[in-house]
Design a protein around this nucleic acid. Sequence first.
DNA 1: TGTAATTACGGGATACGTAAAGATG
DNA 2: CATCTTTACGTATCCCGTAATTACA
Lengths: 306, 306
Amino acid sequence: MDRFTQIETFVAVHAKGSFTAAAALEGVAPAVIGRRMDALEARLGVRLMHRTTRKLTLTPEGQAFLEDCQRILAEMAGAESQVSAGGAQARGHLRVTAPAGFGRRHVAPLIPLFLAEHTQLSISLNLADRVIDLVNEGYDCAVRVGDLPDSSLVSQRLADNRRLVVATPDYLRRAGTPQHPRELLQHACLMLSSEASQTRGWAFRIDGQTHFHRQGGRLDCSDGQVLHDWCLRGLGLAWRSTWEVAADLQAGRLVSVLDAFAAPPNGIFAVTPERHLQPLRVRLWIDHLRTHYARTEYWMRTGGAL
Amino acid sequence: MDRFTQIETFVAVHAKGSFTAAAALEGVAPAVIGRRMDALEARLGVRLMHRTTRKLTLTPEGQAFLEDCQRILAEMAGAESQVSAGGAQARGHLRVTAPAGFGRRHVAPLIPLFLAEHTQLSISLNLADRVIDLVNEGYDCAVRVGDLPDSSLVSQRLADNRRLVVATPDYLRRAGTPQHPRELLQHACLMLSSEASQTRGWAFRIDGQTHFHRQGGRLDCSDGQVLHDWCLRGLGLAWRSTWEVAADLQAGRLVSVLDAFAAPPNGIFAVTPERHLQPLRVRLWIDHLRTHYARTEYWMRTGGAL
DNA sequence: TGTAATTACGGGATACGTAAAGATG
DNA sequence: CATCTTTACGTATCCCGTAATTACA
């Protein structure tokens, strides 16, 4: 028999003053209350209350045990509500990691509002491009862009992310605007270089087929931020994520080209160790990100494509 | 599902570091541990530990909840052991009531030893001849002599009690020793008088029949102690309980007569509100009384009859 | 590849509800 | 005599153990 139910019943019986009333309170048959009390007293080996049909009288043991029970029930309720996701208020400490570039631009700015909305919460934001072991390093949530998340972890799509070929209007005036990916061979393409040479190049969708453009120009770099800067200086075309260039497109500093051949969008994901039973703070945080990413259309409107 | 078992399991899993080890500890199948953890996490709506086949990692919620659980388990165990009859040491407060005369002579003297044997115990002894409502006045135990105890209460026989006709040797020398109850008509019988006149007289067993002698002499009183004193002064015969006159018989101050016609012994009882589930202190107290009443043969040896 | 967690499944203990009986003031 | 507790009894639940499966290092 459930020991907690037993002491709950005991406390309820004392509070209501009769088995019948306690039964009504707990929504069970009166007989059940009597049996629970029998079981509790039998287990303890001591009588807790003298029972007549008219009056229930606590024994000295019952008196002492009642006080303990009341305290324990209160502590149990407190412990569970502290931890339970049912609480409306998020508490504790949220640990988030994100890629450095994206995090600086699109995670860090969203944190002050979230912190203000949840005053019982503290946050650690880790910005790093290395792959983080969420579980072992104690992170609640990672933001990942583009590539497929780790196995055994769970990802939720926060927003679409599109890769675009961009350049300054000035560059396009000088070099011309390419109308087809094959024309890129005649342009200054600012390629991302990698020691691991895992970069597959710029992806395009041509007649239902995915093609990759790998032909670089006179400049390449292993750092996307640098490519971005070079592109802004009119040094050539770059293949960048919308989240990186949205502001520049909005301001007219950059223009996107070859939108008709853009590859299917990949995503921006929230990655967590578990799909279910997430702490409230994590669910609220992911909601926060999703809401703002959906609302801040500044990075989505890249020609109306998406 | 038993909430108490759930948190016990949770604590055990953390302590042993794996479900399998916790299962062995609790003597159940490993699958059971997993299901209990599932149920606990589902009920709380939050994950308490990240589980792989090799390592269990507490989540922040799990960490916090674990500490609460450990404290609650300790308090639960404490509360139950405090109250449970399983504890070897009697504690708390024992409330006893007894008839005034009997209590002064045969209850109060036994209390100092009992108190010394149970140092965690305190005792209240109420001596009164009125009938006490054990439950409502908060008594653990009453000692009753002779008559049948109240209904709905439970009595345990502590010792036999015999009523005897006694007198001083001097009186018998003067008035003669009666050989049959009918000869009492010629003696100075010190009768107990009562306003309620519920006294049935002196009971004798004659040829298998119970007879009552009601013929008084020149003296009667409503107080047994007074009759006793008069008897000791040689004023006549008295019909007294062995517990009252045992010391006098032992010392030769009184002699019993008509032992062959003595009525069947009635008893000395311990009366409690309940038969089962008695507090440890009550069981020990009753044992104490029974043991000493059986051992202190001074009041039993009243001619070898009993 | 071996160990541990999980899932599937069948059986059995047990707690429940209903209704009648007993107790109490 | 009304009300509350207790008992009797049939039923449904759910919890467990076994064994096969999956996941992880």
